[in-house]
């Protein structure tokens, strides 16, 4: 759905426009939110943050329709909201948000540009290795080891039996380790 399509549907039914946009971008927004909050947010906080993102998107689109592809716009709102949520959660847990905190490492400073480049490169390699597992193993690995879903939850998402998921988790995990090792990456460096 692009901006024009959203506006067109919105003219007919706001609720319908919200629902369709939500359905299309829920996974994308969720990926961005989790990417920023994974280490600090409980599942409820993550859901709360995702709902904040969509509320803001809906609100903004009321006054400021977006033309063309909305992905960039949505990603920006999701990122902004996630960072704010991170700060809020950090305060709640009395965690000092250092400006150099690795949670903010997505925003580099001149001083650590080299380290940041290395980190980005490592991220790319890991993402490539996961992709190289093929489906459904790449999804299983990421759901299990990154989004911390249980085998039962993953099974529900993929219409598989939990036992099949567990088996594939083991095998795909080994394949991922091997792929990383082949690229010269040790697990402890992740």
């Amino acid at each position: 759905m692009n901006g024009e399509e959203y506006s067109s549907i919105r003219k007919r039914s706001r609720e319908e426009a919200h629902r369709l946009l939500f359905e299309e971008y829920y996974n994308y927004v969720g990926t961005i939110v989790v990417n920023h909050l994974r280490n600090i947010a409980a599942a409820e906080d993550t859901e709360e943050c995702i709902s904040d993102v969509f509320a803001k998107i809906f609100f903004s689109l009321e006054e400021h329709p977006v033309t063309g592809d909305m992905r960039k716009f949505i990603a920006t709102v999701a990122k902004c909201t996630s960072i704010d949520r991170f700060r809020s959660l950090s305060r709640r847990f009395e965690k000092s948000v250092s400006l150099d905190d690795e949670q903010f490492s997505g925003i580099s400073s001149d001083d650590d540009l080299e380290a940041e480049n290395e980190r980005c490169e490592l991220q790319r390699i890991v993402a490539d290795c996961i992709s190289s597992l093929g489906e459904p193993d790449s999804t299983i690995v990421i759901q299990k080891f990154y989004y911390n879903k249980t085998s039962r939850q993953i099974a529900g998402l993929l219409s598989m039996k939990p036992s099949a998921v567990r088996m594939r988790v083991k095998r795909a995990g080994e394949q991922l380790r091997a792929a990383l090792a082949e690229r010269g990456i040790k697990e402890e460096s992740l």
């Binding site: 829920y26 996974n27 994308y28 969720g30 990926t31 961005i32 939110v33 989790v34 990417n35 920023h36 994974r38 280490n39 990603a75 690795e102 949670q103 903010f104 490492s105 997505g106 980190r119 980005c120 490592l122 991220q123 790319r124 890991v126 993402a127 490539d128 996961i130 992709s131 790449s138 999804t139 690995v141 990421i142 759901q143 080891f145 990154y146 989004y147 939850q153 529900g156 998402l157 988790v169 083991k170 995990g173 080994e174 991922l176 380790r177 697990e187 992740l190």
Partner: peptide, 26 residues
């Protein structure tokens, strides 16, 4: 099996996020 820590992927750039299998919920 031992959990693989994929924390390296946190705060990734947009292009990497695009590559990742997306978050999903029931």
């Amino acid at each position: 099996m031992k959990k693989i820590d994929l924390g390296i992927l946190d705060n990734a750039d947009d292009d990497i996020i695009e590559k990742l299998p997306p978050f999903s919920s029931d």
